[in-house]
Amino acid sequence: MGWLLIRGWALLVYIFMFLPVAVVVMLSFNASQFGSFPMTGFSFHWFVELANNDAILRAFETSILLGSLTALVSTMLGVLASLALIRYRVPGSNLISTILIAPILVPEVVLAVALLLFLNALSLNKSFLLLLMGHVIFTMPFVILVVQARLVGIRRDYEEAAISLGAHPIQAFFQITLPLLAPAVFAGMLFAFTISFDDITGTLFWKPGGVETVPTQIFAMLRNSISPEINALGTVMIFLTVGLPLLGMAVARRMALQRGS
């Protein structure tokens, strides 16, 4: 009886989580002129509109470029730091961990203001570089958390075995450790990309005038009125942000399986 109640409650929670998203996807295929309820027919009309909207295409370009560079830089920084924390006995490693995680312990608005005003005082104005630095600093903690969690599972013995068999430490790293690390690195990069691609809180502070990422473009469009184009854009985003991590997980699992066999 109690279990039935819990089950029903959980079902309601799942519906609560999914319903609004399902409505976005549904409305994006709506044929009606205003794209609101009721559904009058099935149409790709709004996706065609979307594909012809230069502002949105530019926003996509910016977001993908920003996300990729962010993923690259923050994964590099994060993987190196995680290696140090997991593979070595570093004095004060607890404090160091806390320092490295600090960017997500500080409210993002505060981080955004501090970085913007500080770099502005150094005469570095709002720019793509500022956006990149901002995105790197708040995605890095997530990369470190993800990579550390996976690194713990990789034993150091393999590397040591290679070294004792005559490999140079650098050689051992690139030929033994890095391939073992690959799934963790991949997961970290994907995570960083997704977070960067989705960010709006910091981005609105850092972006130069005229530059829009996909979330800020959606935000700007919302200020006018909600058009079905937004729903179509939302549908594309949903498939991107859900599809990419799912793909990443599948690839990581595959790589792990291959190694295991």
């Binding site: 998203v21 691609f197 709006i200 939302g234 985003m237 942000t241």
Partner: peptide
């Protein structure tokens, strides 16, 4: 839904 964009 966690992965779906916050703004969406």
């Amino acid at each position: 839904p966690f992965w779906i964009s916050y703004i969406i």
